[in-house]
Write a protein that binds this DNA or RNA. Structure first.
Lengths: 233, 233
DNA sequence: GGTTGTGAACAAATTCACAGCG
DNA sequence: CGCTGTGAATTTGTTCACAACC
């Protein structure tokens, strides 16, 4: 079954694997050898049945009556997530957000070295941000040629995002993480994920607003729309 | 039906409303009076049936044979999302990411003014970043007292996130957007959303890896695991 | 004719509950 | 006896397809 499922790990599961991995890495660092689905669930903020089902998609790596071997799970999950080698990243847009991302230790540390930033602003091109060279957007093809299969992180203004994405893709990029507040159209062979800061705040605003409405109008009645939704995934 | 559904807009729909709203605001700015579900779907990157079902949760604001009135929809959606007034935001952590977020125009512009940053680093406290005062974490209670019901954006290191969240919550905060790479535990009455940059890259890495495996091992056979998943939600 | 609004069909994800194994 | 792994049940979300309406 495991071998079969290899081809069909559900999207929802894939989105949780990195959380498990981070949790497990912490456990390994604190010399925990084994962990139960119950405890891992607690640490990862999900429920135990979900953990077991998620992990079962990777294969049968647990021991009944005991739990999962932490080190081994870390190894298998890293392999599964393709984290056994680094993936070079190029950040498009050397504005505030782009610079922050270039400085963000979480990237390089976790196997995603930022090899370059690109921008069209000639006054920025040629400088370095946190050691990362800022190059002109026109050099994109060269950068891809130098580093191979890079991941593009878009931190441009909304208006420029589609153009830059198009150029990235025609230069050979197949993975894009979009921070620009714009909907991107990409061909089928390109993987796209998006992070929209304003959208997240607006979602919070919705639930908050709802709550205000509910408590204002009805001081009676039991609680309906409960909070504590953990979004993004 | 619409009145009934008011209380139960599906989570998946709520997560899309901000995208529709942004799209509609753009249309309004370019003097488009009416829009069909088909066209809105195209611009928002979803399918038309989904748009219609999503909008039906807000009420019957469309006209058969014609489409939706853009201005009116913008108004209704803003109201629904609680965007008719500003929601003050406090950013915890005046590091790279926190500073970038404070500088990020998308926040203040879209009704989420950053009223303060908090940090424990005395060398930062007292300064201003993009006009936003940096105050000490200990002043949190005062800030909440000054501005009322604020939204907390956590941009602290992972290790500090739970502590800061706890302090935010005991100061009265009920909405938290977490950028720290850590799983937070919050009480039931607090709304939590999270954005994890490294997680997003790892998800891209998974699909990319899969693709590499597939094309490497089998040069034959039709395409299975197709790309172009648009994540985050 | 064109487009919405929505039941019904379908698909994905979650949760339950327990057999099976260590 | 404890904990995994997984079928079955349930819930949630998506898509279809068409009647209702302008």
């Amino acid at each position: 079954m495991a071998e079969d499922d290899r081809r069909t790990i559900p999207e929802a599961t894939v989105a949780r694997l990195p959380i498990y991995l981070r949790t497990l890495a912490d456990l390994a660092a604190s010399d925990t050898a084994t962990i139960s689905s119950e405890r891992l669930a607690e640490l990862a903020g999900v429920n135990a049945a979900k953990v077991r089902k998620d992990l079962s998609h990777l294969g049968s790596y647990g021991t009944r009556g005991v739990g999962y071997d932490v080190e081994y799970l870390v190894y298998q999950m890293s392999r599964e997530l393709g984290l056994t080698h680094d993936w070079p990243v190029v950040i498009a847009g050397a504005g505030n957000l782009g610079q922050a991302l270039a400085n963000y230790a979480g990237f390089g540390n976790r196997g995603f070295p930022v090899v370059a930033m690109v921008d069209t602003d000639r006054s920025k091109v040629g400088s370095r941000i946190n050691g990362v060279p800022v190059r002109h957007l026109d050099e994109l093809e060269d950068i891809v040629a130098e580093h191979g299969d890079i991941i593009a992180v878009l931190a441009t203004p909304a208006g420029a995002a589609q153009d830059v994405a198009d150029r990235m893709i025609s230069a050979g990029v197949t993975s894009v993480l979009n921070f620009a507040p714009a909907v991107l159209n990409v061909p089928d062979h390109v993987w796209l994920r998006k992070v929209d800061l304003a959208v997240e705040l607006q979602i919070l605003s919705f639930y908050r607003q709802r709550h205000a409405d509910a408590t204002a109008t009805a001081t009676a009645s039991a609680g309906n729309g409960e909070p504590a939704a953990t979004g993004t995934g």
